[in-house]
């Protein structure tokens, strides 16, 4: 039962943080949406479609941030065998997958009016697509192995191999697209961003970060519960009758 001492502490900490994170999310989202729609100018080139940026860029940032959370959790789980770390990786993965999918979808919807096409095989899009595959692979591996502890550590190994690969993939596809495509693809980081657009962007990024904190803590508590239930089931199966 010593393993529960830690999670109990974690649950208390989570319960202390959750109201603040929820409050921060509501405030940041409200302010962010207000600035995004009412207090920022349309772009002189992109017009009103630039407003997609305020949800696209935060999603892309969070997609990478969440993978780093997952990777650090995996490393901690493999090296120090911390029982909560395995659960942290598992809790983070679906959130990261959703952020990644949203970064791709909003990017496509922004790309269609700007580039004239939903999809180009440019470096950024391709490497984010690979990131989505890594998330899906991580979750599939958790699902595929029955024994939770083993499943988690196998998925952790995969997450760490993915970490090594992400910069390589990023670098290779950047290089690849410049080989095959002339500079027809508009660079997002081309024009330096104006303060009036930076404000809503940062507010929305903050809102996404707070959203992550809230849902991540919920999912951590959920994973702790699931682990407790699994252990309880095992105990009741193996313990001789009346031994408790």
């Amino acid at each position: 039962m010593h393993r529960f001492a830690n999670p109990a502490q974690f649950n208390r900490l989570a319960d202390a943080i959750l109201p603040w994170a929820t409050g921060a999310f509501v405030l940041l989202l409200g302010a962010g949406l207000y600035y995004a729609f009412f207090d920022s100018p349309p772009d002189y080139q992109q017009g009103e479609s630039v407003r997609v940026m305020y949800i696209h860029v935060p999603a892309a940032w969070m997609a990478m941030f969440t993978y780093m959370v997952m990777a650090v959790a995996s490393f901690t789980a493999l090296v120090w065998r911390h029982p909560l770390a395995l659960l942290a990786g598992r809790a983070a993965a679906p959130i990261g997958a959703v952020f990644t999918a949203l970064a791709l979808i909003t990017g496509m919807l922004w790309g269609k009016p700007m580039w004239g096409t939903y999809w180009v095989w440019d470096g950024r899009l391709t490497s984010v697509l690979v990131l989505l595959f890594l998330y899906l692979g991580y979750m599939a591996l958790w699902q595929a192995i029955d024994e939770e502890e083993k499943a988690g550590r196998a998925a952790s190994i995969l997450a760490l191999v993915g970490v090594v690969n992400i910069p390589i993939i990023k670098f290779s596809v950047d290089w690849w697209s410049t080989l095959h495509q002339p500079a027809s693809v508009m660079r997002l980081d081309g024009p330096t961003i104006d303060g009036s657009m930076l404000m809503p962007l940062l507010l929305m990024a903050g809102a996404y970060q707070a959203y992550f904190a809230v849902v991540f803590l919920w999912r951590m508590k959920l994973e702790i519960n699931r682990r407790k239930l699994a252990v309880a089931r095992q105990v009741s199966m193996h313990a001789p009758v009346g031994a408790e």
């Binding site: 690979v130 595959f133 890594l134 599939a140 290779s172 690849w176």
Partner: peptide, 13 residues
Amino acid sequence: LLILPLYVPTLIF
């Protein structure tokens, strides 16, 4: 599913 994404760099180069 696990390894094909990791093959991207090798394939590109």
